[in-house]
Computed example of a mutant assay.
Amino acid sequence: MLATVIHAARDIRVETVPDPVITTGDDAIVKVVAACVCGSDLWPYRGITPTHEPHRIGHEFIGIVEAIGDDVVSINVGDFVIAPFYVCDNTCANCRNGVSTSCLNGGWWGSNDQKGAFADAGQGERVRVPLADGTLVVVRRQGQGHEHEHEPVLDEHVPGLLALSDVMGTGHHAAVSAGVQPGETVAVVGDGAVGLCAIIAAKRLGATTIIAMSRHADRQALARRFGATHVVAERGADGIAAVRRLTGGIGADRVLECVGTKESMDQAIRSARPGGMVGYVGAPYVAPELPLRPLFNANVGVNGGVAPVRGYIEELLPDVLSGAIEPGRVFDLELPLAEAAEAYAAMDERRAIKVLLRP
């Protein structure tokens, strides 16, 4: 089968790799309907995260179950499923505590941990899914009375369902971590796919004033479609001042940090009102130090981390299927899997917000 393999910085290839096979009773084989490139995939693409040897890449996919192991009980052949960006059993103590990203038996797509248990990755034609009962979320069950058929998922739903594998749940985690409540003012730092989905999440949780911090006209337009009431293009001290002007001089009740740099975290903290809260989900590859004195002085709280999206998918799924939220609109470019290298280049060069790949 075909899959995306990263060889080195800016060296993405689509190659023939072995077909996945069931190796444990907990496995499932999923035929990928759609996958995508994540902003975090750009770290190895740019060489910031080193690639020591070629390996498969990609951690977001949806598809149809083709085979299951003998011990799988909640997933059936023919089910249309969403895979979160990690593997989890959904039963261990950490999973039960709502932190499935720290599953005691789980891991990350494309990883060689646990003797290669999670070495498969999402940007390919098929994926072996370990711990299938815990990892996968069923969108549509196999059709009743039709042994070889499954209920159809409309093509128009595919982008939104794919967004639930990572970016929509991650944006939601920022809003939940910040404690967004109805009637509040929310500022969102970051206008990538996660930041845009954080706007959706803030509106869904009842925020009435939503400030999108964005310098790009196309992303500003999408932010407004998703529910942003104001746009601030400035950064640094000017951006903080602009947020305060929009909030009676005090700052936002909640600030959602969706970038992961020292500058973005500083922007978020200083845009919050005294007693406010920052929810952060930006992956800090170069970890910024928290400025404790400003936090202390203003009683600003900080909460967040890697998003346990497996626990959010079932909550958000009905709103995607009904059209109440439209996170799939963050995919502004669609390409065949064979053109994965162009997908990475387009996102790296900011010619696309997020690219959907079709095998």
Rank of each mutant, 00 (worst) to 15 (best):
D41R: 05
P182S: 03
A198K: 01
D166C: 11
R46Y: 06
T16I: 09
G116R: 15
L246V: 06
H216S: 13
H7T: 01
R96K: 15
F226L: 13
R270W: 03
G110R: 05
L295V: 05
G206W: 07
A340S: 13
G25C: 02
G279A: 07
G171L: 07
Y285L: 12
P18W: 14
V99G: 01
R245G: 07
T247H: 03
K31D: 14
I62E: 00
L335R: 07
D41H: 09
A93C: 07
R140S: 14
D89L: 10
I48L: 12
R215C: 12
P54N: 05
P130R: 04
V186T: 08
R273I: 05
D332A: 13
I6E: 05
V5L: 09
E326W: 06
G276W: 00
E125G: 10
L164M: 10
V167T: 12
D79C: 11
V255T: 05
R310G: 06
S74A: 14
I82C: 02
E334N: 09
A93H: 11
V286A: 14
P50G: 06
D238Q: 12
A8T: 02
L290H: 01
V153Q: 08
A223C: 08
A341M: 04
V17Y: 06
H148S: 10
G275Q: 07
D71I: 02
G179Y: 00
E315N: 09
M168N: 03
G195L: 08
G124A: 11
A212N: 12
T208N: 06
I82N: 01
G323C: 13
E263K: 12
T24H: 11
H59D: 02
V330A: 13
G122M: 03
L246P: 02
E263T: 13
E289N: 09
T185G: 03
P274G: 06
N90W: 03
T208V: 03
G25A: 05
C88I: 01
N299D: 15
C36V: 03
A3V: 03
G279Q: 07
I210H: 06
G160S: 08
A132T: 00
A217G: 08
R225L: 14
A34C: 05
D133Y: 01
A338Q: 10
Q181N: 08
I75T: 02
